[in-house]
Structure formats: C-alpha cells, structure tokens
Design a protein around this nucleic acid. Structure first.
Length: 901
RNA sequence: GGGGGCGUAGCUCAGCUGGUUAGAGCGCUUGCUCGACAAGCAAGAGGUCACUGGUUCGACUCCAGUCGUCCCCACCA
C-alpha cells in the first residue's frame, strides 16, 4: 500500500493521473454500445485563444456532467475541438505578419497567406487543448475535431448547397454592416452597440430656384438634423411624414443640397417621426438602413460617398480620398461658413462597432450572400414550445424565442480568406451563378469551359460552420454509427453571450439537416467577472489566468471554486480566497484519507476488508445511512443541473459529518482491544470514504483518483460506479448494513447535542482544555437513547470524566451549569467554576425566548385557518415543535426555581 | 422603446415549486501543538431577508408598485 504525503500537494499527482487516464483510453467512447448514450460537444474554442477563466468554468461544468454520467453507466462522450475563427484568426495572423515582416496579407497573396495561417494553426492551434488537459477535462481526444477538417468542410458545403437549392440562400445587394478595419461585412450579431457622445447638426436645405411661394412657413427651405453630415453627398431626398402639416406644401417640390448644388425632391413617407428633430429627414440610401428602405419605396438612386476603406469617394467631390471623420470636420466647417448651419445639439449617438477590432462599422450597400431565416426559424421556435429543446435556467428560452421571432436574414459572406470558401462559381460567358458540391469543370448554364468559371472570392461566416458542430463532428453528412449513437446530443453547456451567435444557429441547422434539435438541454452559465465585479479584460488588468491558479492551488481547487460559486445562469465573481478555501478542503480530505490509511496499516494485506461478524455501532449505521441519503440528494441536484448545490452537499458530508464526527467516534474502537469491532469500524471507514470519493470525483477528479489508488481499490475511480447509479458493476458496499438508519440518526443527533452542550458550557466557564469534567444527564424516562457506547463517545469528545444518567429530579446536582436539550437536561456540576449569576441570566434569557417562541406556535395552532388548511404534516410538525418548546420551557423554569432555592 | 437579472450577516454569495428558531465561505472574537489535518480543532458574536402595498391560515420565497443597480434586444434623423 502506498503512503500519503503529510500535506496535500496537487503537483505531485495531477499530471500523472491525467496522463494515465488519457493513455488508458478512459475518456474514449465507442459508438454502438448498448449503454444509453450521453453526449456533450464542447463549444470549440478559437485557435487564436488562450484558456481563460470563462473556458475554465464552461469546461468544468461539462466535465462534471460527463464524469457523473460516465460513472452512472452511460456511454458518455464529450467531444472536443477547436474553431478556425475566420475573422479573429485572420486579423491575428495579419497583424503578426505586419509586425514581423512589415507585409500586408495582400503583399503575400491569398494562397501564401493561407499557408501562413495553417502554419500558425499548427503551432498555436493545439495550445488551448493542451491547457484544457490541465483542468482535468475528460474529453475524448481521439475524436478531436477542427472546423476546417475535411469532413467538416464537406458538411459546410452540403449545408450551403441544400439551403441554396431550397431557395433559402440568396445573393443580394443589400445594406450590411461593414468593418473598414477588417475589410469585411459583418452579421448583425457581430456588431456591438455602444453609446457615444455626439452631435446633431441642423442644416438648412434651401428651396430650389423657381419653387418659391409654396407656403408661408417654408420660404427658407427645409431644416434637417443629422449626426452624419459627411453622408450628405449621397443624399437623394428629404422625407417628411405625409400627415405633417408643417411640410405638406413642400412634398413634391425640390430643395438644393447646400454647396453641392444638386437638387433633390421632398418626398412623403411614413418613416419620419414628426416628433423628432425637425420632422424632416435627409435620405441617404447607401449609408443608412432606414434611408435604404425609403429609397426603395420611392425608387430613388443610391449613390455612394463613403467607400469600403472608410474614405470618401468621388461623389464627395473635393473631399475624395479623405477619411470619413476628417471629411466630416471639413465639411461642417464649409457648411457653417456658407451659413447653412442652423444649430447643433449634444446627444448620445448609438454606435455600432466591430466585435473583433472595435472599429466603428459603416452601414454599406453591397453584394453579399444571405440566409433567409424566417422559414428556418419556425421549427426552431416550435422545438422550444414543444419542449424538445429546454433552456436551463428557463428564462433564457425567452431570450432565444424573442430573437427567433424577430429574426432577420443572415449575412453569411465575409470578405476574408481564412475560412470555408463559398461554393459558388460565376461564369464569365453567361454571367450566371453555379452553386455546387464539387468545383464545376464546365458551366452548367451555358456549357462554357472551366476557364470561364471563377469561384466566389468570399468565405463564410465562421458561425456558419460552428452551427453544424453537434453533427458535423459525428460524421454528417455521412450516415455514421457515431451519428446514430450520439446524436442528438444530451446537453449543450455555454455562456449566455453566445446564445444568438451559436446556440440559435445550431438549433436551426440541426432541425434542417437532422430533423431534430441537436440537444435536448441548453445549460447556460454566466461570466466569471474580475474581483472588482467588472468583466475580466486585458485593458482593465483584472484578468486571472486559470493556469497560474492551477499551478498554485491545483486544478481541483480551481474547479471547486468555479462550481461552488456558480448559480445557474448568473455571473460569478472571481475570488482567490475561495480557491484557497477549496484547496484547504482538499487538504482536509487528504488528511482524512491519510488517517484511514494509517489505521489500515496494521492490517496491511488484509484488504479487501470485510465487516466480519462485528455488530455495527450506531455511528456506523448513521454514517452509512446518511451517506446513502446524501448520495441520492446529490444525484437529484445533478439531474436538475444544480451543480453548486450538489458540490455543497458533498462538501458538508465530508467535512462536517465524516471528518468532524464519524472519524472522531471511530477512534474509540480503533484504539480499543476488541478485534472484531476494529475490523468493523475499519470496513465502515473505508466503505464510506469510497462512497465519498465517488460522490466527489466528478467535481474534484484528481485528488479523488489519487486517494482511490492509495486505498488499494480495484480499477480506477473514473471507471467506477456512481452510488445508486445505472450500472451495477459495483454494488454499493453499504447495502447489507443499512438498517435502522433513521433511529441511528436520531441517536447520533442526540449525542451531538450533548457533546455540543458540554463543550459550550466548558468554553463559557473557561474550563482548562485538559481538565475532565463530570456530566449528569437527566433524561426523560422514555428517551434513554444514549447507550453505554455512545456515552463513551461523549466522554472522549467533550472531555467528560464520568457520565451519570438520572431520571429523577431529586438527583439533580446543585451548583451546576446546565443545558436544556431535546428530552434531556445536561448538568455539569462544577462548583468552583460555575458562575451562578451568569447561569441564571442565561436561563432567564432562554426562558424569554422560549416563551415567545411557544406563544407564537400556540397562536398559530389556535388559528383554525391554519389547522384546517395547512397540510397535516405541517400541522403535526408545528405541534411537535410546540411540545418541545413547552417541555424545554418547563425544564428551564424548574431549573430557575432550583437555583433560587 | 421593449425584455430580463439582481438588491439576504462587515465582504462574496446559497436559500428550487410559500410552512426552517434564515444558511455557507471569508473576515471578526475567545480558547486550543489531546496519536489525520494550524491549509487544523472547538466555542461564539453578527441579519426588522431594499422599500410599500396585496394574495394567503402563513411570504425571504408568489403578485403589483417604488427606489437602487446591472445586462440583453431595437434602424431613431
């Protein structure tokens, strides 16, 4: 048998344990077993990424569920992988290229640049999965996938072509969000919204010559407000509400764009809100989504004055080539000089920024590929309504539903190189588009040769491929055994921040490709915030590196902290102190195990232990019964995804009950002479510890596996059975012992009461720690629950020299400190140490409390409404409480009287 | 403009479908090298559960409103 070091040091074994799990294939799961499947696909981290605290939380939750189900006997598969993260990676590699070689990606050209990215991926892409191993992630690395693997590419093409063939993917010239920095279009979800301080400029657009006299109010033209004066070059109209009397006479007339001199019409349209601004809006269809709509309704042109590089176009005349903001300043100055500025107003302007580079996005008109989402959203909405898809916590279902109901078409093309290239070819001869699974060799429309076919330059939104993750990773579009076994997956674990980006799109694609929601449950967690409550970020400097914490305290401690602090769906705050307490808990368990092992030493070689013919003691029945009960509660909590509740229950059981009480009581027999009793207590110590290790393993896998090994158990804990689980490979070792658990529990609770009471009396009286005190227990005749053996425990646990049990008040000692307990009064006769005045004081306070409490209860029970309407069990419980309180009160009074006399 | 979260001990938070004398960790006070553990043990102090109403026999728990705070969604010149 191995020895345990005196102090818990995770560095001694975490790595070794992990390697042994991985080497032995303990994480691997084959398809086609007869066990029920349990599947989680890991949200694939970006290959650009470093493991951060959010991953640590996300993955720990998944690992707990996977390990627990695996122990329960499920065919548990946790499938890991990484995401190519199109835009993020491209930006990253391009930056590096520029820093190191001063070259842009255009300097290299597409193919050479892509080769670079692949090289980069080879070097850094595996980093994050290495880091995941440090956390103890029990995922099946043999099945690791990457979103640009050949099989997954095939899935992407297949999905694209299918949607295209169904008319759900189309190419259109529409308003999209454009990031000038990244040089690509963005989907709505990729645009973040911030409020920026800004101005409204009110400019006067004069009436065109020859249109005077149209009305009394508008002789000087029309005043419009704008926050973006630089778009004025692309104005094509001024819109007013048809019911707005102020401008009615101007509709159909023309005004002149200041300085530019171009004449534009005044149109009536429902879009302008008469309450806002001046009620008149300048219309710039190419640079504002609303204006675009207005332009469409009125058949207006769509001139462009800001280019894809965020510089002014020729449309801006002398400002051509100028940056959009520089132009704004110059142009406002020119208009002010020209006398067109009426006033300015400070306002908060909602601004869209790129989620990758933070650059202010530009609404742009351009040719892009879109997915028509409405028809795809319908089944996704139904899945939630029918319960095929459930969110935990439920409220996130509402968020999802709301988004689905308001869904708009998804812009999926990106003007990037790194990603899945769009499977569309343009024919130079006939100008038509061919969408195909394989690169065409001739134009299917006009028969032109390969030379006239050009593939679309763009790649797909990175979320287009990750949206297929739950089934592309299992082999789709092929019909594979993996797919048949593990799809649909059981639960998706992720943060609320990517419900729209990712979760919603997986549901849509799953329903479309597989005809089923890709997972039945979505378990949502929140963010790990910095110690200051702010989002962890580099710029704030409040980020904490999980790996440093693992180095310092061990992965188990980090996991414990993350699990314990995370109520479902809510954000949690980082606290290193909590990791320290978790580490301390691990140390506690470590030492408890050390104690057990030390005491098994004398019987080295006798394992596996049997309980022999020894009779179980009350404390044996108690701890065995309690452990079995808590195991059930932990299982229930895990079923409900209440991981923090589950871990807390295991924690309490180990720390409070097993360590603080059971082990202390076990010492009596361990250090005694009775060999049969010794064998029994050893067996129970080991059996209960084994169950505790099983219960704790999903949460703290390393320390539990290590101790398991030291106990000399057969096989590994990771492969062992969950107490009361599906699998009967290992029977709960407590079975033949679970007798009278309830009665034993009552006795042990009574014992604890007595011990605590004596300890309290000793502490208050300032009794010297080593000094033994006598104890007199006045018990109610019927309540003689404490056996000789238990009284023995009282002696050792409370520092008592002798216990005298009496049933007659006449025998109550004088000058004793006392404590009134359920069915008993404990007296510690210590004439020299007892402060009778203080004792009286305490009793009076107690009396007052009890009087108040029983009066409350009596009133409640006297209330007919209560007795009639409350459930009988509740009424019964209240009656019992009252009886106890009255009993305690009577005893308190007796005691007070005795003190008087 | 919609939608949602949160406000419980000095600090960080648990308290699920209403019935507990309202809990934990950290911190605090006091005392402990007694054969697993000072990363420990024991005993304590500390809360009118944001506020106001309502439903109920009964509300920290449900409902409405108020205040404070945070977040998400939305094309406001």
């Amino acid at each position: 048998m191995k020895e345990l070091a005196k102090t818990y040091d995770p560095k001694d074994f975490e790595q070794r344990i992990y390697e042994s799990w991985e080497k032995d294939g303990d994480f691997h799961q084959e398809a086609g077993t007869d066990k029920p499947p349990f599947t989680i696909v890991m949200p694939p981290p970006n290959i650009t990424g470093q493991l951060h605290m959010g991953h640590a939380l996300d993955q720990t939750l998944q690992d707990v569920l996977t390990r627990w189900r695996r122990m329960q006997g499920y065919a548990a598969l946790w499938l890991p992988g990484t995401d190519h993260a199109s835009i993020a990676t491209e930006v990253r590699v391009a930056e590096e290229l520029f820093e190191k070689e001063g070259k842009t990606k255009e300097d290299l050209g597409r193919d050479a640049f892509l080769e670079r990215v692949w090289q980069w991926k080879e070097v850094y892409g595996g980093r994050i999965t290495e880091q995941a191993r440090r956390l103890g992630d029990s995922c099946d690395w043999e099945r690791e996938r990457f979103t640009m693997d050949a099989g997954l590419n095939k899935a992407v093409v297949e999905f694209f072509v299918r949607l295209y063939e169904k008319g759900l993917i189309y190419r259109g010239n529409r308003m999209i969000s454009w990031c000038p920095q990244c040089g690509t279009s963005l989907s709505d979800a990729e645009v973040e919204h911030e409020d920026a301080e800004g101005l409204y400029w009110y400019f006067r657009y004069p009436l065109a010559p020859g249109q005077e006299g149209v009305g009394s109010n508008n002789q000087n033209g029309i005043v419009v407000a704008t926050s973006r004066p630089e778009t004025m070059f692309a104005d094509v109209a001024v819109a007013v509400h048809p019911d707005d009397d102020r401008y009615r006479d101007l509709v159909g007339k023309k005004v002149v764009l200041p300085i530019v001199g171009r004449e534009i019409p005044v149109v009536a349209d429902p879009y302008p809100d008469p309450e806002k601004g001046t009620g008149a809006v300048k219309i710039t269809p190419a640079h504002d989504p609303n204006d675009f709509e207005v332009g469409e309704r009125h058949g207006l042109a769509k001139p462009v004055c800001i280019g894809f590089d965020a510089k002014m176009t020729a449309e801006a005349g002398q400002y051509e080539g100028m940056d959009r903001y520089a132009c704004r300043d110059a142009w406002v100055a020119a208009l002010t000089d020209g006398g067109f500025l009426v006033k300015t107003e400070k306002v908060v302007i909602p601004t869209g920024t790129c989620y990758r580079c933070d650059c202010v996005v530009e609404p742009m008109l351009s040719d892009q590929w879109f997915v028509k989402m409405k028809p795809l959203a319908e089944p996704a909405i139904r899945a939630l309504q029918t319960g095929d898809l459930k969110f935990v916590p439920e409220r996130f279902g509402k968020t999802y539903l709301h988004w689905m109901e308001e869904i708009r078409d998804w812009c999926i093309s990106r003007q990037l190189w790194w990603g899945h290239r769009i499977p569309a070819w343009y024919c130079d001869s006939c100008g038509k588009v061919i969408v195909a699974r394989e690169a065409p060799t001739v134009c299917t429309k006009c028969g032109a040769g390969e030379a006239s076919l050009r593939q679309d330059e763009d790649v797909l939104d990175t979320w287009f491929s990750s949206g297929l993750w739950p089934f592309s990773t299992l082999g789709w579009p092929e019909d594979t055994a993996d797919l048949r076994t593990f799809f649909p997956t059981s639960v998706l674990v992720t943060g609320y921040d990517i419900i729209f980006f990712w979760v919603a799109r997986m549901v849509v694609s799953g329903l479309e490709c597989m005809g089923a929601s890709p997972f039945s449950h979505v378990f949502i967690h929140g963010l790990v915030r910095g110690a200051d409550g702010q989002k962890m970020s580099k710029s704030l400097g409040n980020g904490v590196d999980p790996l440093e914490i693992v180095d310092k305290y061990g992965a188990d401690a980090l996991r414990f902290m993350l699990l314990h602090g995370s109520a479902a769906g809510g954000d949690m705050r980082w606290s290193e102190e909590s990791v320290v307490s978790a580490r301390n808990f691990a140390n506690k368990l470590w030492n408890a195990a050390r104690f057990v092992v030390m005491n098994l030493d004398s019987t080295r070689g006798a394992l596996p232990l049997t309980r022999g013919s020894g009779e179980p003691a009350d404390e044996d029945r108690w701890i065995l019964g309690l452990t079995a009960r808590v195991a059930g509660e932990v299982t229930d909590a895990l079923e409900k995804f209440e991981l923090s509740v589950a871990i807390e229950k295991v924690y309490d059981l180990i720390r409070d009950e097993y360590c603080d009480w059971y082990i202390e009581m076990a010492k009596a027999r361990l250090y005694g002479e009775d060999e049969a009793a010794k064998a029994t207590v050893r067996a129970v110590l080991v059996d209960v510890l084994s169950d505790l290790l099983r219960l704790l393993h999903p949460f703290m896998p390393f320390i539990t596996e290590e101790i398991w090994g030291v106990l000399g158990k057969d096989g590994k804990l990771i492969c062992d059975a969950w107490p009361g689980g599906l699998d009967s490979r290992v029977k709960p070792e407590n079975d033949n012992f679970s007798v009278d658990a309830a009665e034993a529990e009552a006795r042990i609770e009574a014992l604890k009461d007595v011990v605590r009471a004596v300890r309290n009396i000793r502490a208050e009286a300032g009794t010297a720690p080593g000094k033994k005190v006598p104890l007199v227990l006045r018990v109610d005749a019927a309540a003689g629950m404490l056996s000789e053996a238990l009284l023995g425990h009282v002696k050792s646990l409370a520092g008592v020299s002798e216990v005298t049990v009496i049933t007659d008040d006449a025998d109550v000692p004088k000058d004793a400190a006392s404590a009134i307990l359920k069915g008993m009064v404990a007296y510690v006769p210590l004439a020299d140490l007892v402060d009778l005045a203080a004792e009286r004081e305490k009793l009076l306070k107690e009396k007052e409390r009890l009087e108040k409490f029983s009066a409350q209860l009596a009133a409640k029970l006297a209330n007919e409404g209560f007795t009639a309407k409350a459930p009988p069990a509740v009424v019964e419980a209240e009656r019992a409480k009252l009886a106890n309180a009255e009993d305690a009160l009577a005893k308190t009074n007796e005691r007070l009287e005795a003190l008087q006399g």
